Deep mutational scan, measured.
Amino acid sequence: RGFLEKAAVKKMAKAIMADPNKADEVYKKWADKGYTLTQMSNFLKSKTAGKYDRVYNGYVIHLD
């Protein structure tokens, strides 16, 4: 289950990176699912340092 969630989160993160207008909708879905910042950090780990920082930081702001 965790692997599928991670894959889904990364897919949506890539969608945000391609079209930032989708961010609020995606952040709301993640918040509704109760994803914590720790979970998001783990889901968005990448071999490329900083690749998903913008998405993660946007989610931090959304939760605030």
Results as ranks from 00 to 15, higher is better:
L44I: 03
S41R: 14
R1N: 14
K51G: 05
K6C: 14
A31I: 05
A18W: 05
N57C: 15
K22M: 14
K6M: 13
K11R: 14
N42D: 13
L63W: 05
D19Q: 06
V60D: 03
E5C: 12
G34L: 04
S46K: 05
Y56V: 07
S41Y: 13
S41W: 15
A7E: 10
K51M: 10
K10S: 04
Y56Q: 03
V55L: 02
L63A: 03
P20D: 05
H62F: 15
E5T: 08
V9A: 04
Y59V: 01
T36I: 02
Y59T: 01
N57I: 11
G34M: 04
I16R: 00
S46R: 05
F3I: 10
F3W: 15
I16K: 00
D24F: 12
D19N: 09
T36M: 03
T48H: 10
K10A: 05
N21K: 12
E5H: 07
G50F: 06
L37Y: 04
G58L: 03
A15N: 06
K22Y: 07
K14Q: 12
K10M: 11
Y59P: 01
T48L: 07
H62R: 02
G2L: 13
V26P: 00
L44V: 01
T36G: 06
P20S: 07
G2T: 12
D19G: 03
G50V: 04
N42Y: 14
K28V: 06
D24G: 11
L63H: 03
D53P: 01
A8I: 13
A7P: 04
L44C: 03
L44F: 04
D19R: 04
R54I: 11
K45W: 09
E5L: 09
M17L: 15
I61L: 13
K28N: 08
Y35E: 00
M17T: 04
V9P: 01
L37R: 07
Y56D: 01
L37F: 04
Y35W: 05
I16P: 00
Q39G: 03
G50I: 04
A18P: 00
A18I: 10
A15M: 13
K14M: 11
T48N: 10
A31L: 06
T48Y: 08
G58P: 02
A15W: 07
A15C: 12
D19P: 01
K45T: 12
S41A: 15
F3Q: 13
V9F: 03
G34Q: 05
M40K: 00
T48I: 10
K51E: 12
A31V: 07
D32L: 12
K45V: 08
G50N: 09
F43N: 02
K10Y: 05
A8E: 14
P20V: 06
K47F: 07
D53R: 07
M17P: 00
A23N: 02
A15I: 12
T36A: 03
N21T: 14
L37D: 04
V9D: 01
K11P: 02
P20W: 15
V60A: 14
M12F: 04
L63I: 07
Y56P: 00
V60C: 11
G58A: 04
K11A: 12
A18T: 09
N57P: 02
D64E: 15
A23G: 06
Y27F: 08
N42A: 13
G2C: 15
Y27N: 01
E25R: 08
N21S: 15
Y35H: 03
Q39T: 07
D19V: 04
K14V: 07
L63N: 02
K33A: 13
R54D: 15
A15S: 10
K6E: 08
S46H: 07
D24T: 12
Y35A: 02
Y59M: 01
T38S: 11
K6W: 10
K33C: 15
A49C: 13
I61A: 14
A18N: 11
M12T: 04
F3D: 14
E25Y: 09
G58D: 05
R1L: 14
D32N: 10
Y35S: 00
I61T: 11
M12S: 06
E25D: 10
K10P: 01
K10R: 14
A49T: 10
T38Y: 10
K29T: 13
N42T: 09
N57H: 11
G50P: 04
N21G: 10
L63R: 03
P20Q: 08
Q39N: 05
A7T: 09
F3T: 10
L44P: 01
A23T: 04
R1G: 15
A18G: 06
N57D: 14
F3K: 14
G34E: 04
M12L: 09
G2Y: 15
H62N: 02
E25T: 08
I16W: 01
K29M: 15
S46A: 06
V55H: 02
T36L: 03
M17C: 09
S41Q: 14
K28R: 13
K10F: 06
W30M: 02
R54T: 14
G2P: 11
K22P: 01
K29S: 13
K47E: 12
A8C: 15
K14A: 12
K22S: 08
G2K: 14
K22T: 09
D53K: 05
Y35M: 05
M17I: 12
Q39A: 08
K47H: 09
N21I: 08
K33L: 14
R1F: 12
W30A: 00
I61W: 09
K29N: 10
D64P: 03
K10D: 03
D53W: 08
Q39E: 12
K6I: 13
M17W: 04
Y35I: 06
T48K: 11
V26K: 02
D64A: 15
L63T: 04
